[in-house]
Amino acid sequence: MRTARRRPVTLFSAAALAATLLAGCGASSADYEGSDAIAPDSDVAYSELASEEMAGGAALDYAAEGQSVPMDEQVIRRGDASVTVDDPYTALTVLAEKVAEMGGNVSYSSQWTTGDHPRAEATVRVPADQLDALLAWLPDLGKVEQQSTSSEDVTLEVTDLRARIGALETSIDRLKALMSDAETIADLIEAEGMLTQRQSELDSLNSMLTYYTDQVALSTLTVSFTTSADAPGPSLSWGESWQSFLNSLLWLLNMLIYALPWLIVVGLGIVAWRLVRRSRKRGAIRSEHVIDLTSD
């Protein structure tokens, strides 16, 4: 009887112990699988993101996110004009003052004389909406001999630059996030290298965009000033004629100086040739005289 009672208890204890061990193993297996599921996924996510940055995937993500760049019209306007005035230097000063009133500036100016005729030229930049007004004002300075304008549409270039700049900025932000989450030195070095490359590209694109923006905002106009005295005038005066005569004499004197050595050589050659010729004639006369005496 005692033996029969102990056997069920022993079997029950063994079953309970086995259940406990199985439960513990199941929990450990679950914890192990959960840790494996998290760590590899983190490494894979970093690797995929780094590869995407290296392949330029940030630009695609930027477009996929639906970020749009406004397609406003971007036009660069340029012009040039030639004006006949009484005093080019004064006209240049007045032009600079007018441009300053319009909110522009003089980027280049020059003054010189051709003979006795003064001339001047200036390249000015004014707000794009003031270019037509400045061209209409030029007749107030003098007679406009020539005038032309040109336009260059750079809308596509500016839009493309803005989109690429936005993509690079997004890429740089993601690379900075990668660097903050990097767990190894290799990952950090890789992210820093890509960040440096992206930043260099961003600086270059920003410089190009700044240039286009400046050219669109301020139009360029080049103005040349001449005088009516530039046209052919009357015949030379007595003073100018006398000066021309003296210049001609000076030119002849210089030519004579340059030719003098050659003239000396040629003169000596002629003298030597004549002396030789005279000596031969004397020899011939003497020979004839001797022949005559012999015959007699």
Rank of each mutant, 00 (worst) to 15 (best):
D296P: 07
V144L: 01
A58D: 09
R2E: 14
T226A: 15
S295G: 14
K98G: 11
N254W: 15
L17C: 13
A259L: 07
E101M: 08
A133K: 10
V85T: 07
V290F: 14
Y258R: 09
N254G: 10
S150H: 06
E48S: 10
D116K: 01
V265T: 11
V9K: 15
E65A: 14
C25T: 10
A163M: 10
G103Q: 04
V223P: 00
G104Y: 01
M179F: 14
L209I: 07
L293D: 05
A231P: 02
I189E: 14
F12S: 11
L161F: 00
D181R: 03
A58W: 06
V216W: 04
G66Y: 03
M194S: 14
G269K: 00
L195Q: 06
Y258D: 14
L168W: 04
A167T: 03
E157L: 04
E101I: 09
I185S: 15
S47K: 14
T3I: 06
P127E: 10
V144H: 02
S224Y: 11
S150F: 05
E192F: 05
R164G: 02
Q243G: 07
L218F: 11
N105A: 13
W137D: 08
L260V: 08
D41H: 15
E183P: 01
A37F: 05
A167K: 01
V265L: 06
D181V: 01
A163H: 08
S241M: 08
A14W: 09
I165L: 05
D36F: 12
W262A: 15
E101C: 04
D181S: 07
P234L: 03
D296H: 07
M1W: 07
Q111L: 11
G283F: 00
E33T: 13
L218C: 05
M194N: 13
A259Q: 09
T3D: 13
V106P: 01
G193E: 13
A19D: 14
P232F: 04
G142M: 01
V44T: 10
T20N: 11
D187L: 02
D140F: 02
D43K: 11
D292E: 12
W238K: 08
I185P: 09
A63D: 14
A39N: 13
N206W: 12
H289V: 07
G66W: 01
L49T: 09
T294V: 09
Y258F: 15
V126R: 04
I257W: 03
S207C: 10
G267Y: 11
R7N: 05
I38H: 14
D230W: 13
I76T: 05
I76L: 05
Q215M: 10
T184D: 07
W137M: 08
T149E: 13
L246P: 04
P261G: 00
T184F: 02
E240A: 12
L156D: 15
I264P: 03
A186H: 06
A259G: 03
L175R: 01
R164C: 02
